[in-house]
Design a protein around this nucleic acid. Structure first.
Length: 408
DNA sequence: CTTCCACGGGAACACTGGGGTG
DNA sequence: CACCCCAGTGTTCCCGTGGAAG
């Protein structure tokens, strides 16, 4: 009898190695990034000579190859350090996950075999444990903080302490590399931290369509079976991604999903149409994913815009209208409503996520409001929203009508 | 120039989940 | 065990402010 997995593991005639198209894959060759790689290597080479490398800030938007470059250079450096017998430790921290001073220090302390709980201690205790742990040997420690702007928003103490830690160490030497996709993030910092952290700066400009093409071509050669890609596919993926501030990650996703769509539809080749479908699918997924992980109150808030959308024949609403509707929805669900102050913050958050569009307008005599409108298609939002069992009570269309009418 | 409304910064508070100490 | 300390998060409270219609 045929095995259950038989038909599922044989390639569908499209992909040779799909992993290459994942953004987590670090290629041997990074096109159009020689300058950045060279700069980084030049600065970090100090570590191999027993000196302390300058602190670095790396700027660049998402998908410009910051993380890939960093990981590539790290690998090379570690290899060389091993060969020369220099004691060099490279630590990679994603500050979106370790996003407070306490958590970063704890993570670091644990790398140096110190037992520190993830919460509970006073921070200075963790700090001194960390120093003890690092200072046991003569070594160079390179701390890479990815998404460092996320850390800076919550105060600059973590960065301040890290940048002055060298003066309190006798044996070890620390170099801090901050990776940021916000070019203005240093303005949040104390001037002293700013100057010590930003001794060297490396900029990763967005890729243009031609450069994206090069990246895609290189990976497509490995990823796809020969000649399944129609000629226009790569340029189209590159063009789509170039519109979105030259995001290589997006270009790769687009190419991969196009291939998957072609494969599952039984097509022998990948064509333009598949790319368009992939683009739509990615966008819907993104919106759905964002909404799913929203806190309950934000979901209710989003739903109140939806309710207004349905009942009035306009698309933009004042914050007053939205807040009243939101209160009624909460009331219907038997929940405590948040204050107006809090709701304005939630609206701003949804604005940043790209789900709502909110503009402040002054209506003269009639005060000041935010005009709020939905900035994604309604059909993308509602189904995902009603998946939440706590919002089931709102799925009835009559209920929704009543809620708006009560406001008149 | 006044007036109006909500915006948005900042302080204060409540609560959570974990520590150490006696 | 009871008790207090600590960092972190989400929220409320208070209030000064912007800016065009009247």
């Amino acid at each position: 009898m045929e095995n259950l997995f038989e038909g599922l593991i044989t390639e569908g005639g499209i992909f040779a190695n799909k992993e290459v198209l994942r953004s987590t894959y670090i290629p041997e060759n990074l096109p159009h990034r020689n300058e950045q790689i060279g700069g980084l290597a030049r600065i970090l080479s100090a570590a191999l000579k027993g000196e302390t490398p300058s602190n670095i800030v790396i700027y660049g938007k998402t998908g410009t190859g910051k993380t890939a470059t960093m990981k590539f250079v790290s690998k090379e450096l570690e290899e060389m350090a091993l060969r020369r017998g220099s004691n060099c430790t490279i630590i990679y921290i994603n500050s979106e996950i370790f996003d407070t001073q306490y958590r970063v220090f704890t993570y670091l302390a644990r790398v140096f075999n110190k037992r520190v709980p993830m919460i509970g201690w006073p921070t200075d205790m963790v700090y001194s444990e960390l120093k003890k742990g690092m200072d046991t040997e003569d070594r160079c420690v390179i701390v890479t903080l990815d998404e460092v702007d996320k850390l800076a928003i919550k105060g600059d103490e973590a960065l301040y302490n890290l940048s002055r830690i060298n003066s309190e160490l006798n044996n070890a030497r620390v170099c801090v590399i901050g990776i940021s996709n916000d070019l203005t993030f240093t303005e949040l910092l104390d001037p002293r931290v700013k100057s010590s952290l930003g001794e060297e700066e490396i900029i990763f400009p967005p890729y243009n369509a031609d450069q994206l093409k090069d990246i895609l071509k290189e990976r497509a050669e490995v990823a796809f079976i020969d000649s399944v890609l129609e000629d226009s596919v790569i340029p189209l993926c590159a063009a789509f991604a170039a519109q979105e501030h030259g995001d290589a990650r997006r270009a790769l996703d687009l190419l991969r999903v196009s291939g998957e769509i072609a494969e599952s539809s039984g097509s022998k080749t990948v064509c333009e149409e598949h790319v368009r479908l992939a683009s739509e699918k990615l966008e819907t997924n993104r919106v759905g994913e964002v909404i799913k992980t929203l806190p309950l109150q934000s979901k209710i808030l989003l739903d109140s815009v939806l309710v207004l959308n349905r009942e009035k024949n306009k698309r933009r609403f004042s914050s007053g209208e939205v807040y009243n509707t939101y209160r009624r929805l909460c009331n219907h669900l038997g929940m405590e409503a948040l204050t107006q102050r809090r709701v304005t913050d939630l609206v701003s958050e949804l604005d940043i996520l790209g789900l709502l569009n909110a503009v402040i307008v002054s209506k003269g005599r009639y005060g000041r409001t935010k005009e709020i409108s939905l900035s994604v298609p309604e059909e993308c939002v509602q189904p995902v929203l009603l998946e939440d069992y706590k919002l089931k009570a709102l799925s009835d269309i009559k209920v929704r009508t009543q809620i708006t009418l009560k406001g008149e």
